[in-house]
């Protein structure tokens, strides 16, 4: 975070190499964050490009506050860009369903057949959108609850609670999941 502050200070005084450093620090994280929400390479690239362009245009106004970090600010831009994409592109699937839309060729080798995929889709489909989003940010993006709370505009306690409830719900459907595991290790 201190490193971010230093870089932003330099960017705000016109140092382009500081912006390049900041981009290098965050590109992969933001790309993945968007990809998990779209599961489509071209869309992810397009939205990633929009995210960084918006960040560049607004970075002169960025201010560190006692609660606001640059990381959360950037993720929030990315999240809003994805939401706008789904709002303005009716031909695209609803964002609520995106976590279920992995292409088979995108999956880790461990899940190799469509039935496994469908099982996970079913289980995640049981969760509320917000729970899914928090679980994905925590487990896949490896974001802290503090970061998630800033991105979602919710309290840390509420994010933790949502995550825990989501996992509990998945646990209650454990039999199906155990079947998946069995298939995974076979």
């Amino acid at each position: 975070m201190e490193q971010d502050k230093e870089l932003i200070k330099k960017i705000q005084s016109g140092d382009s190499s500081a912006f390049a450093d900041l981009y290098d620090r965050y590109f992969e994280k933001i790309y993945k964050f968007i990809y998990y929400k779209t599961s489509h390479k071209e869309n992810a690239e397009d939205l990633c490009s929009q995210t960084f362009t918006k960040a560049l245009e607004k970075i002169s106004d960025f201010k560190f506050t006692k609660t606001g970090t640059f990381s959360a600010w950037l993720y929030r831009i990315a999240r809003n860009t994805v939401i706008d994409f789904y709002r303005t592109s009716p031909q695209q699937q609803d964002i609520d369903k995106t976590y279920n839309l992995y292409q088979e060729d995108d999956m880790e080798n461990k899940i190799s057949n469509k039935q496994d995929l469908d099982n996970i889709k079913d289980k995640l489909g049981l969760l509320k959108q917000e729970q899914k989003e928090i679980i994905v940010m925590r487990v896949w993006d490896e974001l802290s609850y503090k970061e998630i709370s800033e991105i979602m505009g919710k309290s840390e306690a509420s994010c933790k609670m949502n995550f825990s409830r989501g996992i509990k719900q998945l646990k209650n459907s454990l039999i199906s999941i155990i079947i998946i595991i069995a298939l995974l290790v076979s």
């Binding site: 998990y36 992995y102 995108d106 880790e108 996970i120 679980i135 487990v139 896949w140 595991i181 995974l184």
Partner: peptide, 9 residues
Amino acid sequence: TLLAAKPKA
């Protein structure tokens, strides 16, 4: 399981 389902981005 959730980690295994993480797409390869």
